[in-house]
Design a binder for these strands. Structure first.
Lengths: 343, 343
DNA sequence: GTTAGCACTCAGGGGCGTCGAGTGCTAACC
DNA sequence: GGTTAGCACTCGACGCCCCTGAGTGCTAAC
């Protein structure tokens, strides 16, 4: 693929991303200074199509990029689009604001991403089980139940209603909490050493109480439990994309966006190092093979914490999405660090 | 308005609700046994239009009900549609399931309502400030901040990150929590007696600590704070309504549904006794004058707790929405009672 | 008061010609 | 041999027309 072909491909992709219309040879000749006539560009485009980088709806409609075409563009031709100062300012402003609850950080991150990219944003918060236990307390609910409040180092707080074994009093629960606090402080939740369990076991003589303690810990770990972990933003912004002009398509994608489990799987599949782009048919899941996903993972001290992503039509401003995710990434890692995530 | 007119009006409304197409005299003659010819029905329809119950897009299109027509229908003609046993079973099943967190109850209620009615469901949870204080605890976050966990009698739990005044230790905070717990137990949060404040004041000697205590209480009361209180469901179901065939309309309504404050105001305006229907132009807010809202409030011992609502096109199955809300209402009141709301 | 009959209206759909954007091919050009 | 101009061809979009079907309103007859 010689340089001129690359320039033509670049021109086609850029114009198509901008206009959402198939682009023709004359348009390119007019808008990009390639120094050749439309006829030559036509020839190049025919070649590019033969090579699989462009597609043709019908004879006489302009070309649109194929997944392969986008891939080549993203990997080599694209120039990363810098965020404007205004956009940066807007983001910085928000992150400097006082955070009231940790969930807000993720929700707002999703909102900001979708706002800037006009696409759906997905934010997968750090998994609770990856974080370090900080403390457990119980609040009394009624005579049979109490509420367990579990906090981890990242400032995550989980509530669970737990039934108290008959015969156990609230004081027993508080005693149990003290034991658990003593034994688990500093443990990462998905890797509680056996020794810790043994210690809890030995300090809690009552069998039922021990079971209750395990129950609390296990249910706190059960991430599929609540709907907390995945934050979505921009289902409305999405509608401004011409790809979603017809309601059927919108329904389809909204349906998919409700399948939280599926989304998590998709994000997990993309879990890679840093920025990653998956384009159209590269997606395993059939329903989004006309969409692309840009994902970024945020880390702390080498430990994977979570993922943020932009999901949109293949005709997406990859450069912008990538810069933005990179930028948000830093902020998120920073926030999580400030909140005292265990490094 | 004689009986035959009423029967014609009823027929028009029912058919229109079912088909979403303007209905003509012949259709009615065919599908409802009124014992008269289409011509007569035409005459009646002309009268009904004159009286303001029906509308006409143009000559030669069938009639559609006006807001006034729907109103008459809802107030007098409609037969309340019973829920099917299957629907009831589905609902009962869910409510019998083990509730993990109180928020789930409201979220799932919204989901169920939207699923059955194919419209948007709104659930306004009991206001925290109306509930009785149960207990306050602190969890340590870092050396400058801690997390306040406040629980009320309904099982609501609120977390807030609070800054600790310099000089105060976490132990001070725990001491403060004990004082607050002693003084406020049983108080309704929006009506904390002055005496309670005085008592707290006298028991907490440290000025900064007292301020911090007030801060926690006040911020917990601040309902606009989190996004917890209003639960939405069914933005996807909504799309199956033919009224939302064009994306512009969808965008409009989605935009509105994001304005949580606005929705709360609308719901509050509809706050009435039991079931209430607001139809089309009866709505104050311009953006939903082609929509109707059915609201129901749930109480306990005469005290208003919250509101559940169905929002959809004026062409809505009022009977079904009303029965459903009534049914969900009982369940909700029941759940809240079980969770020990202070009567 | 009810109904049949008739003229009229309007939206929707199919057929048709036009226009414009675009391609592919060929022959000429440098 | 690569580049370009020219030309025939294709196809979607648009506007137009006409037809059809559903529906009304009016009038006259029952």
């Amino acid at each position: 693929m010689d340089e001129r072909k690359q320039r033509v491909l670049q021109a086609v992709v850029q114009d198509y991303i901008e206009s959402a219309e198939p682009v023709g040879s004359r348009t390119i000749a007019r808008r990009h200074d390639l120094g050749v006539s439309p006829a030559t560009i036509r020839n190049e485009m025919a070649d590019l199509e033969m090579l699989g980088y462009l597609e043709h709806i019908h004879t006489s409609s302009g070309r649109i990029p194929s997944s392969k075409g986008y891939r080549f563009y993203v990997d080599g031709l694209m120039q990363p689009m810098r965020l404007t100062d205004e956009e940066k300012a807007q983001i910085d402003l928000w992150y400097r604001a006082r955070v009231k609850r940790i969930e807000e950080v993720f929700q707002e991150t999703a909102r900001l991403i979708s706002h800037v990219t006009k696409n759906v944003a997905l934010v997968l918060a750090p998994q609770m089980k990856k974080s370090a236990f900080r403390c457990l307390q119980f609040l009394p609910l009624d005579d049979r139940r109490s509420v367990a409040v579990l906090m981890t180092d990242a400032g995550f707080i989980e509530n669970r209603i737990v039934a108290m074994p008959s015969g156990a009093s609230f004081e027993d629960f508080q005693r149990m909490a003290r034991v658990v606090n003593d034994c688990l402080t500093g443990c990462t939740l998905d890797a509680i050493p056996k020794a810790a369990y043994r210690k809890i076991r030995s300090e809690i003589s009552d069998e039922d109480l021990y079971e209750a303690a395990l129950d609390v810990i296990n249910r706190a770990l059960d991430d599929t439990d609540g709907r907390e972990r995945l934050y979505l933003g921009g289902t409305r912004e999405m509608l401004s994309q011409p790809e979603f002009r017809d309601v059927e398509r919108v329904k389809e994608i909204l349906l998919m966006l409700e399948e939280e489990q599926l989304l998590k799987e998709i994000l997990s599949a993309h879990l890679g190092d840093g920025l990653r782009v998956t384009i159209g048919q590269e997606n395993d899941y059939k329903g989004i093979q006309d969409c692309s996903i840009v994902t970024a993972t945020y880390h702390l001290d080498g430990e994977l914490l979570g993922t943020i992503a932009v999901l949109g039509p293949t005709r997406m401003e990859y450069g912008k999405a990538m810069s933005l995710l990179g930028y948000m990434n830093e902020h998120l890692s920073d926030v999580v660090r400030r909140l005292g995530w265990q490094g």
